Amino acid sequence: MANVNFLGATFRLKYVTGHNDQNEPLFTTQTYRNLNGSHTAEELVAVASGIASLSSHPLDSIVKQETTDLS
């Protein structure tokens, strides 16, 4: 049976910062590293909403990326 060991996680907020000449959205991201693996999706959405409320740009998406070691 395989073991799964949590190594780390990142949390990325993607903002719409404007539009180009073809009216396609332009994006920027802000990444937060070294997340604890015990955070729930609800907690991360609440934190992202709080951080995004401080920005003048609308929030487009929230991404959590986990790194694990399989052995």
Score class of each variant (00 low, 15 high):
D69E: 15
A48P: 02
D69M: 14
G50C: 03
V45P: 00
G50W: 04
S71P: 07
N36Y: 05
V4R: 14
G37A: 04
L26M: 15
D21Q: 11
N20V: 07
R12K: 15
E42Y: 04
T10R: 13
N20S: 09
F6A: 04
Q22Y: 10
S49G: 15
T67I: 13
P58R: 06
M1S: 09
D60R: 09
Q65V: 12
G37T: 03
F6N: 02
Y15C: 03
N23D: 15
L26T: 12
T10P: 01
D60C: 04
P25L: 08
H19L: 07
A41Y: 06
D21G: 04
S71T: 09
N5K: 14
L44R: 01
S61E: 07
N20P: 01
D60I: 00
S71F: 07
K64E: 12
T17H: 08
T40W: 04
T68E: 10
V47K: 11
F6K: 09
V47L: 15
T67N: 10
N5P: 00
S53R: 08
P25D: 10
T28H: 13
L70F: 09
T40Q: 08
S61T: 06
T67H: 08
E43Q: 15
I62K: 00
L7R: 15
H19A: 12
R12G: 01
S38F: 04
S49H: 11
A52P: 03
N34Q: 13
N23F: 13
A2D: 07
G37M: 02
S53V: 00
S49P: 00
V16S: 02
L7M: 13
G37N: 01
V4A: 10
V16P: 01
Y32R: 00
E42R: 09
G37L: 01
T31C: 08
A9C: 12
P58T: 03
S71G: 13
K64M: 14
N20Q: 06
V47Y: 05
K64W: 05
S71Q: 08
E42P: 03
I62T: 03
S38E: 10
T28N: 15
E42N: 12
G37V: 05
F27S: 05
A52R: 00
H39V: 09
A52C: 07
L44D: 02
V47D: 03
Y32A: 00
A9L: 04
G50A: 06
V16H: 00
S56Q: 14
A9P: 01
A2N: 08
Q22T: 11
R12C: 10
K14F: 02
N3Q: 10
E43D: 09
V16Q: 06
Q30M: 14
R12Y: 02
Q22D: 15
T31D: 15
I62S: 00
F27E: 06
V45T: 12
L7S: 10
L44F: 03
N23I: 05
L35S: 02
G18C: 08
T68V: 15
F11M: 01
E42H: 04
A2M: 11
A46K: 14
